[in-house]
């Protein structure tokens, strides 16, 4: 079985600060990480590899040359090989252009895949759109918000337990398919020194726009249907009052008074 995992490198959001004077993002010292939801997708690929011998896991990312480090992380976590899809021409891609480029990259580098896994969303853009768009472009069934993925007893089918607003449902679909993960195993694996060493020996291929069966007008900003015309800092919510060092009784009374004043009791 061949599993493609689409991953993205993202800035560590918790580090992001906005300069109160200029309203711009402070970039210094922000680390780039592998999107956590993509790590969950990797977890599922690794699990499937344990149950299914002879599984090859291939990580693919579209991104700048620096995204190589996210792919190394995938290789350290057990992926067999990795593909970096990188070209200046991809700059400014929206979710549609990203999905289209990824679909072409998958066709070019893993044409015989059985399953595509992705994170349910990237923590920077938070759109959750690339997965379903990719599934549609490749004309494959999709299952989003997966928390458990199993090969079904019937060959060439998978069962996915997915989160719903009311709990969970288990869906079955035929392969190939696209599944997005909203959770993985709870304990993050720390790659061993050995993992790190082996990762450097694995195959990491870089492909560019020339390797894809796409027209230049379909790439990046030119190929995007949406356009960002402005970015600005969100209206700052004014912090209210913070009360410290109160006796518990007094604290409780302060809250109760506030609730009464605001009309909640």
């Amino acid at each position: 079985m061949k599993i493609v995992v689409c991953v993205k490198q993202v800035p560590e959001i918790t580090d992001v600060n906005v300069n109160p004077e200029t309203g711009t993002l402070v970039r210094e010292g922000i680390s780039a990480i592998l999107n956590p939801f993509c790590e969950y997708a990797l977890d599922h690929a690794t699990q499937l590899k344990i149950t299914q011998q002879e599984t090859e896991v291939i990580a693919i990312t579209m991104g700048p040359p620096q995204a190589r480090s996210a792919l190394f992380r995938c290789l350290e976590l057990g992926d067999d090989r990795a593909v970096l899809v990188s070209d200046r021409k991809f700059a400014g891609a929206d979710t549609w252009a990203t999905a289209l480029t990824l679909s072409a990259a998958i066709k070019a580098s893993v044409p015989d895949f059985d399953l595509i896994l992705m994170g349910k969303q990237a923590i920077d853009g938070d759109t959750a759109q690339v997965g379903p768009e990719l599934a549609e472009i490749l004309n494959l069934p999709q299952i989003t918000y997966g928390v458990e993925i199993n090969l079904s007893p019937k060959k060439k089918r998978i069962r996915v337990k997915r989160e719903t607003e009311h709990g969970y449902e288990v869906l079955e679909t035929r392969l190939p398919a696209v599944v997005s993960a909203s959770k993985g195993e709870l304990i993050r694996r720390v790659p061993s020194f050995q993992d790190v060493l082996t990762a450097r020996l694995k195959d990491l291929r870089v492909i560019s726009a020339d390797d894809l069966d796409l027209d230049e007008t379909e790439l990046g900003l030119k190929g995007s249907f949406t356009q960002v015309i402005n970015v600005f800092p969100p209206p700052q919510k004014q912090g209210g009052i913070k009360l410290e060092g109160l006796e518990p009784e007094v604290a409780a009374r302060k809250i109760a008074t506030y609730l009464r004043k605001e009309g909640f009791v």
Binding site: V18, D124, G125, T226, Q227, V228, I229, V231, P234
Partner: peptide
Amino acid sequence: AFGGNIMATIIS
């Protein structure tokens, strides 16, 4: 976007 750290205005 960016965890609510910036707002983006978008057209199609």
